[in-house]
Simulated assay, not measured.
Amino acid sequence: MLIIEQVLGNIRSIEKLPPHIERVYLRSDLLLKKIQRVKTDHGNELGIRLKNGEELRDGDILYRDEKNAIVISVLEDEVIAIRPTTIKQMGEIAHQLGNRHLPAQFTNDEMLVQYDYLVEKLLQDEGIPYVCEKRKLAQAFKHIGHSHE
C-alpha cells in the first residue's frame, strides 16, 4: 500500500496531466482527516498521512509519474444556498446561524450551509430566499472553536 504524506499540487494548476488518472472519491468532511485509508476507483488502496496542518481539496494530486496520477474528487454535498436580498436579511440570518455555530462558506452573493431541515424552516419563516441543492464543494465545512464563557 502506497503511503501519501503530502499533496503534489492540484489539477487546476497543472498544464499537462498524465494520460491515466485514478480518482479517490471522498465526502467533503473527509477532506479534513489527516490520517485515513482510501481506495481509488481502480481498487488500489492508499494510506494518507498529511503533515503540517495540510488539508485535502478537490483536484489535489496524491501521486504522479509520467503515465499515471491519483487525484482527489469530492462528492456532492446537500447544501442550502442562502441568497439574502438586503444587508438586513444577511445580518439577521448570519446572526441566527452563528448562534447555532453552523459552519458556512461564502461566495459573492450567497452563504452556503449544510442542509438542515430546521435551517430551511427558519429561512421559510423569515422569508429569506434560498435553494436546496447538491454541490461539489472545493473544501470542507469547518467548525470554528468557540465557547460562550
Rank of each mutant, 00 (worst) to 15 (best):
R100H: 11
E76V: 08
E92Q: 07
V74N: 00
P103E: 13
A104P: 05
T85N: 09
T86K: 01
Q89P: 04
L97Q: 03
V74W: 00
T107V: 08
G98Q: 13
I82H: 02
L102G: 01
M90L: 15
Y115L: 02
G91Q: 13
R100L: 14
V74C: 05
M90S: 06
I93D: 04
M111W: 03
Q114V: 07
E110T: 06
I93V: 05
S73A: 08
V79H: 05
I82V: 06
P84I: 12
S73G: 01
G98I: 14
A104N: 08
S73Q: 14
T107D: 07
N99Q: 13
E110K: 11
Y115S: 00
P84L: 02
I93R: 02
H101Y: 14
I80Q: 03
S73E: 11
H101F: 15
T107W: 02
G98Y: 14
L97Y: 09
A94C: 08
G98R: 12
E110H: 13
D77V: 05
M90Y: 15
V113L: 04
M111I: 15
Q114H: 09
R83Y: 03
R100M: 15
P84W: 05
H101C: 08
F106M: 06
H101W: 15
I82M: 06
K88D: 04
R83H: 00
E92Y: 06
L112R: 03
A94N: 12
H95Q: 11
I87Y: 14
I87F: 15
T107G: 10
Q105L: 13
M90T: 12
N108E: 10
Q105Y: 10
I82R: 03
